[in-house]
Design a protein around this nucleic acid. Structure first.
Length: 477
RNA sequence: GCCUCCUUAGCUCAGUCGGUUAGAGCGACGGACUGUUAAUCCGCAGGUCCCAGGUUCAAGUCCUGGAGGGGGCGCCA
């Protein structure tokens, strides 16, 4: 039995040579042409069946979704849709597929329907393309950092700290919830729990990454992150993947340079390595937008938008400058904003971010130096005492793709900020130790991996760029 | 968590003012055809009108409650 050749490689195979392919039937036309897909690439291999000399019982079993092993000779195609095709000499059904009850039909399905059958949606063009691109981006992230001598640091998934300040956490426990051990005062006795203390799933690897950076200089994390927020939007998940670089000796400008270089590298990598899939996703998106009113359609096609991001520097401006632009903007003056911009200090709503990115600058924007009141305790205080060295990278369609900052490296300032914001400093002595012993300026950020995949693939719902999405009320599969 | 729209055949949807036997396209199935490209042509089957109450002579259609889904907002990556 000849070894399996991937469909992707068949297309550059030798005419006249015998190959064995294995995959799933997409369509079987005319009792004669099998469109076979094995996920190695978007394109199907056309397998030609000599139906007049094939057992009719076997032909009946070649249905949409059935898995086949096929031996055949590669020949130049007589048809127009493909350059080569496989002339089958032996067909074995590996797994039958009853077309009457198989949910995937040889027709267009809605993304909402496919979300309900997420275990089978990999078998569609759209989702196989999305997950190939997702893989390429994951690989490119490691390559980008490795090429720059970063160390991949594995931050813990179970954390004993509940003070990361990035949102609601999922509790981790082995206690019997029907018989929770109590202290004399009625509180839960976590001494009896697995870790002898209360533990949660991580909401961020940043604090641990900082510890690594203050020895290894350049580190990054890339792992799952969990937020128990009741968020119901097209850009939030309860379980998502985050990339968090942290670099010693970097200031806010270095941080912005790193973020912009990284995003451009990743987009460029996808364009170079996923051309076929991106063209397909672009067509899909264009088709989908045809039913939308003109105003809501994107001005650029997908790959055009991706190239546009590479061609020019991201717009960098301070929060204060952004407020001025927004205050004087037409929608603000005409009362079109749901939340009008009146004074400095207001938190920016997504309508404001979208105006800046999609209407005013028409390119990715990096906003910096936000008021300290609306940002986290660990961000470095500016000299004016009013703003901190934060940065948000805003992308069209998905909003905030990166949030980061230069970190507060001064022990006294950090400690007083923690007190102001009611962060229990005594529980975080390990974090403060880095500032007590050989502290250095440093900076880092968090990149939402699924938001990146959304941007590159043009998928509008984040639940369609992760295999099995977790969100409030749903942990299927 | 808030606002809003939706739920009718396997899928995508239509269903008029509340009216008698609930439709279409695609898919599936049967047949014809046999170099097709989500093939084509002919035929056939397929319904808990999301669930529970209520109003009415009569409810897919109106009202109340619930469930599920989409979109927007908040939280954020």
């Amino acid at each position: 039995m000849a070894k399996r050749t991937r469909v992707k490689d068949i297309f550059t195979g030798r005419i006249g040579q015998e190959y064995r392919v294995m995959g799933w039937v997409r369509t079987f036309r005319n009792n004669q042409f099998i469109a076979l897909n094995d996920g190695s690439c978007l394109a199907n291999l056309q397998v030609v069946v000599d139906f007049e000399n094939t057992d009719p019982d076997l032909l009946k079993r070649i249905t949409t979704g059935a898995s086949l092993s096929i031996l055949g000779n590669l020949i130049a195609s007589q048809g127009k849709g493909q350059s080569v095709e496989l002339s089958a000499t032996e067909i074995t059904v590996l797994g039958d597929c009853d077309a009457e009850i198989y949910p995937l039909q040889p027709k267009k399905h809605s993304l909402e329907f496919l979300r309900e059958i997420a275990h089978l949606r990999f078998r569609t063009n759209t989702f196989s393309a999305v997950f190939r691109v997702r893989h390429a981006l994951a690989y490119a992230i490691h390559k980008f950092f490795n090429d720059r001598n970063f160390v991949y640091l594995h931050s813990p998934i179970i954390t004993g700290s509940d003070a990361e300040g990035a949102g609601e956490m999922f509790q981790v426990t082995t206690l019997d919830l029907n018989k929770v051990p109590k202290n004399d005062d009625g509180s839960i006795n976590f001494k009896k729990d697995f870790f002898a203390k209360a533990t949660n799933l991580t909401v961020s690897g940043q604090l641990e990454a900082e510890l690594g950076a203050l020895a290894l200089s350049d580190v990054y994390t890339f792992g799952p992150t969990f937020r128990a927020e009741n968020s119901n939007t097209s850009r939030h998940l309860a379980e998502f993947w985050m990339i968090e670089p942290e670099v010693a000796f970097n200031d806010l400008n270095d941080n912005m340079d790193l973020a912009e270089d990284m995003l451009k590298y990743l987009i460029s990598y996808a364009l170079d390595n996923c051309a076929e899939d991106l063209v397909f996703l672009e067509q899909r998106l264009t088709e989908e937008e045809k039913v939308k009113p003109q105003q809501e359609r994107s001005e650029m096609a997908l790959t055009e938008k991706l190239r546009f991001c590479l061609d020019q520097p991201f717009e960098r401006l301070t929060y204060t400058e952004a407020i001025e632009i927004l205050k004087n903007s037409t929608p603000n003056k005409k009362g079109k904003f749901q939340y009008p911009i009146e004074k400095w200090g207001a938190d920016l709503q997504s309508e404001h971010e979208r105006y800046l990115v999609e209407k005013h600058f028409k390119k990715p924007v990096i906003l910096t130096n936000y008021p300290k009141e609306i940002k986290a305790f660990y961000m470095r205080m500016d000299d004016d005492g009013k703003t901190v060295r934060a940065m948000d990278v805003l992308f069209p369609g998905i909003g905030e793709i990166i949030g980061g900052s230069q970190r507060e490296e001064r022990y006294d300032v950090l400690l007083s900020r923690m007190k102001e914001m009611h962060i229990p400093a005594e529980e975080m002595s390990w974090f403060l130790d880095t500032r007590r012993f050989g502290t250095v300026p440093h900076a880092g950020f968090g990149l939402g991996f699924e938001r990146l995949v959304q941007f590159v693939t043009g998928m509008t719902n984040i639940r369609d760029v992760i295999p099995f999405p977790r969100f409030p009320g749903n942990a299927e599969f």
